[in-house]
Design a protein around this nucleic acid. Structure first.
Length: 571
DNA sequence: GCCGTTTTCGGCCCGACTGTTTTCAGTCG
């Protein structure tokens, strides 16, 4: 059992307890534990094996013990007990914006509403508005939220989860005797932000052993289909996975074919037709059907006169033209990222890491600098000028003492509703690093949101615009924004835009990264870490940046600190 | 259930906003 399942179990337990009137503080404890487990870059089972679970903030003795039980027995007793008393589709209602536990409980108990359709009906027929403290406008608002929820909902899995299963399944298949190569293809290889199903390819002369091993994987819930060289399974988490086993001489052709995208493949095959050759998942063939090549993916590209194109670019969005004219970007890699420019400590908000823990983890990851950017005063526990000064002193003291990564004294300052910043410019100007972000009032009209951000960028004290769209994948849509206008001002003022690497944010998106690059705006790939282990999340941001065609020169935190200082325009 | 420069009990973020009310409950960030 892996992080996503463990997190889901505790999140469900929290929801169930909330709906049935459980202790709200316990509810919060379970929910926080679920959140931190879900965003850990490494497997929670490993920490459990080493007895280190309680070193994770928000996980104490009791929850650690229950995680252990969950990993061994696969079940949480009280979650199962509560789940038997609550209809399963009732929990889903909590995902509708503006609908919380009280509303769900009231609709369920008073009206017998047990799923989304029933809630919609109750809104339309006026039964909901007859409940205490409900009304016509509230029913209307819920109706609209249901439409938005339906539009947003999908069976696709966030990339970080899909990557976990892809890596774990590939590693297991590589150990099967006779298997030469195993790769995940499809949208996970292209690093799309959500993945519908996994395509795994294996090269072997005898397909039987990998096929058998695949269908018997411990994460498999059901085998949907199984032939001699192709099988489909459904994992316990609901993700569908296909395996194809190919002869080694076809592996490269198959890898290309099943990586896609569809548009990319059509364009490549069209080129092949013009050159009088035939491409399929089995190889490159001439007119008479004689095999020319196909063992390596490079063979496919070479056959149509192109260099190898990184999978992240294969969207049929100009990559073939770029390859043809030798203008393919040298995409940024995780090892290029030298520092982290958005990190929280326990000095503010719900973050838990001490400065010492952050330095230690950053050193382990080989980072050379980390900007401590806690929240400003309008956030809960946010820093005021006095708190900020104290933190600067603490950071300076630690920098004098420790030889490891350099800590930068920074802030994540709130952009208020009118576009002013939540701390005076003098206080911000003295800092090493200023991230400015929106955390409230998301629903203003497009012009207001754009003006608000533009004003913040023009303040002269901001280095980076944090999570510029505000979206939370699967939970909250991006706010209305004229990104092009923001990019124009960002270029003019020298402010960078963030690629927030928290798996539920990935914000900027891949598309926005590409627009930023075209507009001449640099980005910062930052983790927004709330616990020390989150510093390892950089890779999520690198995936997005690569899909956005970004090269090391486009990403400011690929620079050593001296160059970073030289680059910034506000000093 | 977690946590601790209030450390084994007793707190736990809190203000803004909305829609319903005529003083406030629910939700959100």
């Amino acid at each position: 059992m892996e992080n996503a399942e463990v997190a889901k179990s505790f999140a469900e337990l929290a929801d169930l307890m909330e709906l049935t009137g459980g202790n709200p503080y316990k509810v919060r404890a379970y929910r926080q534990a679920a959140q931190v487990i879900d965003t850990l870059p490494g497997p929670v089972s490993e920490l459990w094996r080493r007895g280190e679970l309680t070193t994770i903030p928000s996980i104490g003795e009791r929850i650690a013990e229950r995680i252990g039980h969950l990993l061994e027995a696969g079940t949480l007793a009280d979650r199962d007990e509560l789940a038997s008393r609550v209809p399963p589709a009732v929990l889903e209602l909590l995902a509708v914006e503006g609908v919380g536990p009280k509303t769900v409980a009231a609709a369920w108990k008073a009206l017998g509403v047990t799923d989304l359709d029933a809630l919609e009906q109750a809104c339309r027929t006026g039964r909901l508005s007859d409940l205490p403290r409900m009304g016509e406008r509230r029913a209307q608002a819920i109706l609209e939220a249901i439409q938005r929820y339906r539009a947003r909902r999908s069976d696709r899995v966030p990339l970080h989860r899909a990557m976990f299963y892809a890596e774990s399944i590939c590693a297991k298949l590589r150990k099967v005797p006779g298997v030469r190569t195993v790769e995940a293809a499809g949208s996970v290889r292209r690093r799309k932000e959500t993945v519908g199903d996994l395509d795994v390819l294996a090269a072997a002369t005898d397909p039987a052993p990998p096929m058998r091993a695949f269908c018997e994987l411990e994460e498999v819930a059901a085998v949907v289909a199984k032939g001699p060289t192709k099988a489909t399974v459904r994992l316990r988490v609901g993700l569908q996975v296909d395996l194809r086993v190919l002869p080694p001489e076809s592996f490269g052709a198959a890898l290309h074919y099943f990586t896609g995208s569809k548009q990319h493949n059509i364009a490549i095959r069209t080129r092949a037709v013009h050159r009088g050759i035939k491409l399929s998942e089995y190889g490159v063939f001439d007119r008479e059907g004689r095999r020319l090549s196909g063992e390596r993916e490079e063979d496919v590209f070479a056959s149509v006169g192109l260099p190898w194109i990184p999978p992240e670019l294969r969207e049929g969005a100009g990559e073939i033209e770029a390859a043809e004219s030798g203008r393919l970007p040298h995409l940024v890699e995780e090892r290029d990222v030298l520092g982290d420019l958005h990190v929280h400590s326990k000095a503010s908000s719900d973050a838990r890491a001490t400065l010492e823990e952050l330095v230690e983890e950053a050193a382990r990851l080989g980072r050379s600098y980390v900007a401590i950017t806690d929240h400003s005063r309008s956030r809960p526990l946010g820093l005021d000028e006095k708190g900020l000064a104290q933190q600067r002193d603490a950071i300076a003291a630690l920098n004098r003492r420790a030889a490891g990564p350099r800590l930068l004294a920074g802030i994540e300052v709130d952009i208020l509703t009118d576009g002013s910043l939540d701390l005076p410019a003098e206080a911000l100007a003295g800092l090493d690093w200023v991230v400015a972000s929106i955390h409230a009032d998301f629903t203003r009209p497009r012009e207001r949101m754009t003006d608000r951000i533009v004003r913040a960028l023009r303040s002269g004290v901001v280095d980076v615009l944090g999570h510029p769209s505000g979206r939370l994948i699967g939970h909250r849509d991006a706010y209305e924004l004229d990104l092009e206008a923001v990019l124009d001002v960002a270029r003019e003022t020298g402010v960078a835009l963030e690629v927030n690497a928290m798996p539920e944010r990935l914000d900027l998106t891949d598309r926005a990264c590409r627009l930023a690059k075209e507009a001449g705006v640099r980005v910062a790939i930052s983790t927004d870490a709330h616990v020390a282990a989150h510093l390892g999340n950089v890779r999520n941001g690198v995936w997005v940046a690569r899909r956005g065609w970004l090269e090391p020169k486009d990403v400011i935190n690929t620079r050593p600190l001296e160059e970073l200082w030289a680059l910034r325009q506000r000093h």
